[in-house]
Nucleic acid binder design. Structure first.
Lengths: 142, 142
DNA sequence: TTATTTAGTTATCAAAACATAACTAAAGGA
DNA sequence: TCCTTTAGTTATGTTTTGATAACTAAATAA
């Protein structure tokens, strides 16, 4: 059946994405932060600012663990917490200047690997890649 | 610049894929195996048979760790090892019947979640999804 | 035949990640 | 007011994962 095939394609696709992300990212993260800590910084850099709960949900963690990792990042001066004036239970997490620098450095390594990967593609193919990323993110990966 | 935008889209896309995979997969893995062990079974189920070295490379592990996880999976009777008759250093890893059952069960949970996710898409959009998956896997995720 | 390389294993240790319980403090409702 | 819910924290223990060194055994090249 058609949907079965599509499902298999989906499984194989996500496995490839995982492998590729791992390869393209490896070595870009500085060794003084852990993998989850890097993921948090990356996430926050994409959609700043976020609350701990939102980070928790996006990265599928548990609040105690999220809280601890945020504390560690905060102790390393890589993020900054600000309280919501309207609801003082909430806080917003943003990157500190040092955190921004860290992500900038990491992204520049990753971006150069990404460039290598797309360098042989034609203008047309690049546009198709662009559209496919948009389309899948919207329709399948929300 | 155009490529910069594409890169940002790539980062955001891969983050979404990770979140979605995690959500769609959560609870599908039985609790008696670990995450990497599940990943190994999933991988082997996609491209059976594989050598330990190949598994090692795909999942970006180190040989000692791959070897340990394969031993544990083997002890749980979820995989089977067969020696290459032409090169007796090599071995091929395949799923045992129990391993196949495990993956079948997990996939049926994941597949039903996948169905929920694509159910509101039209025939046309489904075809576009199919093509986009093919295209990106080939051009970007190798 | 004697290196050398390849494929995989065993042992051990450390770090990262995960899970649970018990907690504070603010907000919102009855 | 009191109760409940929401947002986040602290403490603690366990499991998973990762890293390194030292190893076997087969294949291959010199």
């Amino acid at each position: 059946m058609y949907k079965k095939k599509l499902f298999e394609k989906f499984i194989s696709f996500t496995a490839s994405v995982h492998t590729t992300t791992h390869n393209i990212t490896k070595g870009a993260k500085p060794s003084n932060i852990s993998q989850v800590q890097y993921k948090i910084l990356e996430l926050v850099s994409i959609s700043q600012p976020m609350t701990p709960s939102e980070i928790n949900d996006c990265l599928n963690m548990s609040m105690p663990n999220t809280s601890r990792e945020l504390r560690l990042l905060s102790e390393k001066k890589l993020i900054e917490k600000t309280l919501d004036p309207d609801d003082r239970r909430k806080q917003y997490i943003g990157l500190s200047p040092e955190g921004k620098d860290l992500i900038t450095d990491a992204f520049s390594i990753i971006e150069s690997r990404f460039s290598d990967r797309i360098q042989h593609l034609s203008e047309n193919e690049l546009q198709e890649v662009d559209q496919a990323l948009d389309f899948l993110q919207k329709k399948l990966f929300q």
